[in-house]
């Protein structure tokens, strides 16, 4: 991918009082025209990053740029080019959805109303009701309409699909892919790994305010890690495989041994040479497995060297 970076942060940090570090030297770049997933558990620093990009909060160190411009100095200009959906959308309870849309359109000074109505139809959203009467899902739909209706060059979405039913999730995915097809960029934070796996080109994993990895979703899911299930004649395989390089999360149940293998197969096969292997099944880990690996101890699963007994205790 080429062109000016849509989002770029360098050593971005944010600390609060009493030494709480919400973000620690984050360096990240988002290319134009990509859907970028931003993954991490609660408190990882995802929302903090987004709030700095929107100039709602100011960084303690480092810099953040969008479209090559400083988010603080050129905030107003940049906000013309972005659409934002916060993680928790709060709006004026006494206004109708349509009134909120008009409010935003007036402040922005421009909106493609035909596209806005298309969005309303596709999301099956009723804009005539007051905000106070909307369910969580409907509020989310209104938020999506508000973020998308002016066709921004960059969409910044914080947990966009939480509260959407599976059908709407599908519509949301389609909208994101259409946005990408338009050459526009999407930066979304999410807990929904299937969503990231379905629509994102690249993903970053954040934990404890630190960036753990950035990679294409394909590479993340096809990392050099495999989930292996073995059926050994006579059992007792777990003890035999504990010391094998690259083996982790070793478990044995009902005569089946399951393990996570990073790196080449050769050490595992050599260790199995003395055993009678009745069956062997190899699968690639889901993004969720990888994600949980990062949560667990802050290290990538692909670099992991943990071995685990049947009760799950690390050794």
């Amino acid at each position: 991918m080429t062109g000016q970076l849509v989002i770029e942060t360098r050593n971005l940090s944010k600390s609060y009082g009493r030494g709480i570090k919400a973000l620690d030297s984050l360096s990240l770049s988002v290319q134009p025209g990509e859907i970028f997933g931003y993954l991490g558990p609660n408190g990882a620093g995802k929302t903090t990053t987004i709030r700095i990009l929107l100039d709602l909060i100011r960084p303690s160190g480092g810099e953040a740029r969008m479209f090559g411009q400083d988010v603080r100095q050129q905030g107003v200009e940049l906000h013309r080019r972005i659409g934002f959906l916060p993680g928790e959308l709060n709006l004026w309870k006494g206004l109708t959805g349509r009134e909120v849309m008009h409010y935003m359109a007036r402040v922005r000074g421009t909106t493609d109303w035909r596209y806005a109505d298309q969005l309303i139809d596709r999301l099956k959203f009723d804009p005539s009701l007051r905000v106070r009467s909307y369910s969580t899902g409907n509020k989310r739909k209104l938020g999506l309409v508000l973020a998308l209706m002016h066709k921004p060059e960059l969409l910044i979405l914080d947990e966009p699909s939480s509260g959407l039913d599976p059908l709407m999730q599908q519509t949301f995915n389609e909208l994101m892919l259409e946005t990408k097809a338009d050459g526009r960029t999407v930066f979304l934070s999410s807990h929904v790994l299937s969503e990231v796996q379905a629509i994102c080109d690249r993903a970053a994993i954040l934990n404890g305010g630190q960036l753990k990895t950035v990679s294409t979703v394909e590479a993340l899911t096809r990392s050099n890690v495999r989930l292996v299930t073995l059926k050994l004649k006579g059992g007792g395989g777990a003890a035999m495989l504990q010391a094998v390089p690259g083996v982790s999360d070793l478990q044995e149940a009902d005569g089946h041994v399951t393990l996570r293998l990073s790196g080449d197969f050769d050490p595992l096969l050599k260790a199995l040479s003395a055993a009678y292997v009745e069956d062997m099944h190899v699968e690639e880990p889901s993004l969720e497995d990888i994600f949980l690996g990062f949560y667990g101890n802050g290290n990538a699963v692909s670099n992991g060297r943990r071995t685990t007994d049947r009760t799950g205790a690390s050794s």
Partner: peptide
């Protein structure tokens, strides 16, 4: 306090 300002300040408005 109501969290509405996050949305408003994401608009092109100093």
């Amino acid at each position: 306090s109501e969290g509405i300002l996050d949305v408003v300040l994401s608009w092109p408005l100093p």
